[in-house]
């Protein structure tokens, strides 16, 4: 079936089977490999992207369900000239990553969180990221990064 989506402001159209998961569509059909596959069971959040501005686990959605949607992946956050998104900058400055595998999903979940709650408390950040696992257990600096991006403590 034909699936048309807008990803990071660009319209894309590709043919795929109905059973194609959105994460596979993004990585394999569109070649955007910044979105990672982690647990494959809707638990870890490494595959988090935004659908119409809201965080979604792209391993738990068929590409068919996203037809016509406006999707943002980690590749779409930085400005065209390479200037990092404030959340990416905060992760860099606060060392919000260790191995980096969970980072794209963490950043996408965190930006969605701040769009719903621009000034979260530390507890709200921790609860807002409960759908994302960091197997390096680097949560302390991840939470610090999100608070820094929100303009709070750093």
């Amino acid at each position: 079936m034909e699936v048309q989506v807008t990803v990071n402001g660009q319209s894309h159209s590709a043919d795929c089977e109905p059973r194609t998961l959105l994460v596979h569509f993004i990585r394999e059909q569109l070649g955007l490999t910044g979105t990672n596959i982690g647990c494959d069971t809707s638990s870890c959040g490494a595959c988090t992207v935004h659908i119409d501005g809201e965080s979604v686990k792209s391993c738990t959605m068929f590409a068919a369900q996203a037809r016509g949607a406006d999707i943002t992946t980690i590749e779409g956050l930085a400005a065209d000239d390479g200037t990092l998104h404030p959340m990416q900058q905060a992760f860099m400055e606060c060392h919000g990553l260790q191995c980096g595998y969970c980072t794209p999903g963490m950043v996408m979940a965190a930006t969605s969180l701040l769009s719903e709650n621009p000034s979260p408390t530390e507890t709200e950040v921790r609860e807002g990221l409960e759908g994302n696992l960091c197997r390096c257990t680097g949560y302390h600096n991840i939470v610090k990064s999100v608070l820094a991006a929100a303009g709070g403590e750093s």
Binding site: T60, M61, L113, E130
Partner: peptide
């Protein structure tokens, strides 16, 4: 229920 991503969908 679940986590924010799950609750969005």
């Amino acid at each position: 229920v679940g986590d924010p991503q799950v609750r969005h969908r």
